[in-house]
């Protein structure tokens, strides 16, 4: 892959929750429109890193941080209002969380809050995003049934469509397929690969094979530190660090 422009840059980022030092001196550059896979065992700081990108760690009252974090060159704490940041940096959670609304209303939840009222525009958004999330064919005739009636895999694709509906530049995935069947997993991975031209994507996953399948570069986190970051092909064949090798070959984690 050609080294693109830098979309997100963290510089000496340190994060604490109370006394717990969750992320230690992290410096990383995420390129425009790449898929960055982030792997590592539990408590390695990978989710903390992900949630710092849309300021979701702020929801924890014990959260403290140091260092700088920039999106497109702008400091995400000083130069970008948090609402705008989260619009630009969307997130797909580990468990699918459809709101107890219809499929249609779930997708347009974001656009409605951001002031889009015209029905034709909303309908356009629904069709476009559901198609991009590979869900349209399955639900196009029943957009007004409750989203709770969908299967887990369908719900997760709906959540993906809902994230796309606010037109983000970056999409964060927090173990998006951890509870899904193989077919839904394949569809979400397919969607990620298709998004490569349009979005910058960060994929945190417990499934190292998934990172190997979809990401351009992969970072390995351990105990709050980034041990290694390299092209995915290289990190899975010739890891530089012994700990990375141990992890991907299944010796721990």
């Amino acid at each position: 892959m050609v080294e693109g422009q830098i979309k997100i840059a963290a510089n000496n980022l340190e994060i604490w929750f109370g006394q717990i030092h969750a992320l230690k001196s992290l410096s990383i550059a995420i390129h425009e429109k790449e898929i960055l896979g982030v792997i590592g065992p539990a408590n390695s700081g990978k989710s903390t890193f992900l949630r710092s990108l849309n300021r979701f760690n702020d929801l924890d009252p014990h959260f403290r941080f140091q260092g700088s974090l920039r999106l497109g060159g702008k400091n995400i704490y000083k130069d970008i209002p948090v609402g705008e940041l989260r619009k630009r940096v969307g997130m797909v959670f580990a468990l699918p969380v459809p709101l107890p609304l219809s499929i249609f209303e779930n997708v347009v939840y974001g656009p409605r809050r951001h002031g889009i009222k015209q029905k034709s525009v909303l309908e356009g958004i629904v069709e476009k995003t559901l198609q991009e999330a590979y869900l349209w064919e399955e639900v196009k005739d029943r957009l007004h049934i409750s989203a709770m009636k969908l299967s887990g895999g369908q719900q997760q694709r709906l959540c993906l469509a809902r994230t796309l509906a606010v037109e983000p530049e970056v999409i964060l995935y927090d173990e998006p397929c951890s509870g899904l069947d193989p077919i839904s997993t394949a569809k979400i991975e397919e969607a990620m690969r298709r998004f490569r031209k349009r979005y910058t994507q960060v994929l945190v996953t417990n499934n190292t094979k998934q990172a190997a399948r979809v990401s351009d570069r992969t970072a390995f986190f351990l105990m709050g530190e980034m041990v290694e970051l390299d092209q995915t092909g290289r990190i899975f064949t010739f890891p530089k660090d012994q700990r990375t090798n141990d992890y991907i070959s299944g010796r721990f984690g």
């Binding site: 979701f56 929801l59 609402g83 969380v97 809050r113």
Partner: peptide, 22 residues
């Protein structure tokens, strides 16, 4: 569920909008 609030916030809504609608 806390997750409803998180979903709403993650879509860029304000805290009050999240409370009001989610």
């Amino acid at each position: 569920p806390q997750s409803f609030r998180e979903v709403s916030l993650s879509l860029g809504t304000s805290k009050w909008e999240t409370i009001r609608f989610s």
